[in-house]
Structure formats: C-alpha cells, structure tokens
Design a protein around this nucleic acid. Structure first.
Lengths: 254, 254
DNA sequence: ATTAAAATGTTCGTATCTGTTCTTATTTGA
DNA sequence: TCAAATAAGAACAGATACGAACATTTTAAT
C-alpha cells in the first residue's frame, strides 16, 4: 500500500490530536465522508489507525487488548465445554505444557482445582491464572512478551522449553486445513508450539468448530503428530477420515 | 467491537481513582446512565473493569492473594511517590531489570508512558503491566512462579537473567539494617536479586521509610553495591552516615 | 485526442448508537 | 423479615454513521 499525501496528512492529524471525528477530517480535507472512509479503511486495515463509530484514533495496546478480550468471548461456551472435557481427562499429579490461545486460558481456569500438577507455559495469563492454585507448580518460560495476548515467544522461549519433557502437551491453534496441517499466524509462536510437541510424550489439541478449514499462514504440525483432538462439534468432512488415517482420537464435548 | 474515546477515558478514570460510581461517570461524560451502563457492560465483559452495585473498579481476581493485595495498599502513597521519582530519573530508551515487590509494581505503572524501554523482570505483574506499553520490549525471566506474589524464582531464573547486562537494575527489598546490609525473606528471591545487581551497570534501590531497621533473614547485598537509594522520607540515624560512607546517592521523593 | 484506470461524489438500504420508558433486581434501614 | 429506595436491564424509537453500488470526474499513458 502506498498512501497518498492526504492519507499521510490524515495520520499526522490523528497523531497530533489523539482522536478525531470523520466529520472533522472530511471538512479539513474538503472531501466527502465517503472518500474519507475509504482512506480510513485502508489505514486502519494497515494497522496505522484504530477506528470507532464516528471517528478514528491512534492505535494503542489498549485497543489491541480489547480486541483480544473480545476474541476471548467468541465461542466462549464452546471453549469452556472443550476446556472442561480436557480438565476431566487430565490426571492429577501429571506434568503439562500449555501454549498461547484463548482456549488454553479457559483450560487453565478449569484446572484450578486439580492437585499436584506441574505446568509449564509461555502464556502470562495462564501463569497468572494457575498461580492461584496453591497446589500447582507453575513454571513460566522466559522470553519476549507479546503485548497483544501476553504470549511469550522467541528463541529464548524455545530454548527454555527444550529443558523439559512432560506427560501432556496442550496446544491450541488458529486453523486446521483439509490437507491435515495445523496452522497458525505468528511464526515465532509456531516455533514454540513445535518445541512443545517435541517435548511432550502425548499431544492434545484443543480446537473449537470454527477452526476447521480456517486458513492460516504458517504450518505448525501435521495431524499425525497429535494424540487426541478435543472439540465441541463433530468435525465436518473430510476431517473424520483424516483423523482416522492419522490415528488421532477425537473427543467431542457435549 | 472497537472502543470509542469515551470508553478509553472511562478506563483511565477508573484506573486513576480505583473505583467510581456510575452516576459520577455519567455526569462526567454527559451521557445517560443507560449509555454508560452499556459501556461498562462491554468493558467488564472484556475483563478490563470489575463492576459492583452502583459503580465500577479496577479488575482484580477475587481469588488473588489478599494478604499481598493488602500489603500493596500499605504505604501506597509513599510507594507511588518513590515510583514517580524513579520514573522521572529513568531515561527514555534504556534497559532495565526490575525485580519482585509492591514498590516495583508501582514503578512499572509509572513507566507506562516511557518510550523505547527494554525491561527484563522476574515479576509476572510487572510484565503484565508493562505489556500494555506498546513501545516497551518486555522480557520475562523463566522459572517457577511463586503464588504468593507472582514472582518468578529459582535456579532457572538466575540462569536466564545472567544472559543479560543492562543499564539500570531496579530492586526493592524487605529491610535495610544498620550494619549496611540489605535483606529479604526468601533465599531464592535473594539469589535472583544478587544476579540482578551483578548484571546491572548501575543499581537503584527503592525502599520506603518502613524498610529502615526492619529485620529480615537473608542478606541480599551491601549498601556499597547500590548506586542510588530512592525513598520517601529522610532516613533515620545512623543511615545518613552509612549511605555517605558507602557512596550511595539518596533521593527523597517529596 | 483517446482510452483505460483510478479516484471521488451521490444515493440509499442497513447497522449502530443514544435516550426514554418501563419492569425487574438488589440494597438498605426499620 | 418486609418495604422503600435505588440500581440494573430490556425494549423501543429516533438520529446518526456505515458501506455498497453506481455515476462522475480526474489522471496517466499511448
């Protein structure tokens, strides 16, 4: 994208004033609202502006944070059902690695009453939630904190996790494609997820129904590396066949 | 959903004042209560606010360690003054290590508007607070999470921190004794604090007046290892002399 | 000069936001 | 415990903002 002078001016104005109404901007550039909306659409899709009903604002982590919290609410009931099913299947006293994701945070909440767990995570929220469980040893991986979702990623994180070997690796992902690949958006998080898979005797995948056929850029792993898939609705075709071939057990939470 | 400026303002007001009634907020924004309730509903569902009958307050997990929260309120004004003084002294764009403690959390809050910081911490709360600053690289040390205060301690933490060397090490402690020793209660945290001192070009100590002559078990360091002491009231005798001997600058926050 | 492509303006159906009114919960004091 | 007072929430209506489709103008290249 190459912004034109007006769009650059627009960014300046917004940055100078924090937030501006579209009306004001349209008047200041002497264009119609519709034209201005097109500019705003481009700039906000590029992440240079955050928009709200009636105007725009400089993007900030508060807004990103809210976006994440909203995502957390998406399919909340489904996530909680999956989380509960997983918590039921996790035996007391075992060791786990839990990665980034809104579903895995729900799992952490369901694990608050388990006894004698040892949990390793690269998710600050999971660590904070589980630190309330006095009978759970929480180990947080070191590394750079991503402000969007408070995930910890990077080379240092991978090295840290490599020190361990646990009973169960719990991973959440962005999408499962019909070629049997598990995918995510951020390659740094993918590196972490791969390490988790490598260091777990058993891999459990948490994915609600919206994840099937959802495209995402980077390949995390193949379905065949997964032991059990926890989901909230029977997977659509051709996934049942794929799961069968790959030897993945599938548990659908009622 | 994308939050509008009023909703962000609302968050600021609540964060600044701890808790506010809906009436007050509605009056301050000149909207009806109903509109305000809609904002509050969204923000609290996103976990950014906690509401009670008649108003809202900053969120905090109810299962959270209450003793620790109470300690956090202890000498709160003093801590905030110290925190502000330290934040003023921290130059933009520098690298820091921040350790465990309620004072250091206050410092983190005061650093939210700094630009270009690189912060390493073994405190989950500090990491969570600073991850809201989009212009700050937060690195969290790996290790075992202590549920009492969400501090990260242990051998792995020490090893992790040893990788770095930063401009300023910010440490808070439990007590300063009149033999010139800095002391704390948990030897594991002491090991971390010692490593921080070792890996910092300059050491700043944050300690409110209650810390002078307060006994604690484990020796962290000697006063002579400290560059600057930030406190809220002139230290009692014999500390002025001790500080002078040890070559420690002392800044009293008004 | 001609033409294609891009940018802008116009119109209109849809979605979102806000205030009003009324009913249902919750708190508080007797 | 009950009743009055206050807060919360649901439902509706009016105002405003949004986005899509199409028409028009401007720009750029041949």
């Amino acid at each position: 994208m190459t912004p034109n002078p007006r769009q650059l001016d627009l960014l300046d104005q917004v940055r100078a004033r924090g937030s501006v109404s579209l009306e004001t901007l349209a008047a200041s550039f002497e264009v119609t609202l519709q034209t201005l909306r097109r500019d705003v659409k481009l700039l906000s899709e590029a992440g240079l502006l955050a928009r709200f009903h009636g105007g725009v604002r400089v993007p900030g982590s508060t807004t990103e944070n809210i976006a994440y919290r909203q995502r957390q609410l998406l399919n909340e009931a489904a996530k909680q059902r999956i989380a509960r099913a997983i918590a039921l299947a996790v035996p007391e006293g075992c060791s786990l690695i839990i990665n980034i994701g809104t579903t895995t945070e729900a799992i952490a909440r369901e694990l608050l009453r388990h006894k004698g767990l040892r949990v390793i995570t690269n998710n600050l929220n999971v660590a904070a939630i589980l630190s309330d469980n006095a009978d759970c040893e929480v180990i947080v991986a070191g590394g750079v904190v991503r402000s969007r979702d408070r995930g910890i990623v990077g080379e240092a994180t991978v090295d840290f996790i490599r020190q361990f070997k646990v009973d169960i690796g719990l991973i959440g992902i962005s999408g499962i494609e019909d070629d049997g690949s598990l995918r995510d958006f951020d390659y740094r998080e993918v590196r972490v997820a791969q390490t988790i898979i490598e260091r777990s005797r058993e891999v459990w995948l948490a994915a609600d129904h919206s994840k099937f056929n959802r495209p995402a850029m980077v390949e995390v792993a193949r379905l065949s590396q997964v032991g059990t898939l926890f989901t909230d609705a029977p997977p659509p075709s051709p996934f049942p066949a794929l799961l069968g071939e790959a030897g993945v057990a599938c548990k659908v939470a009622a």
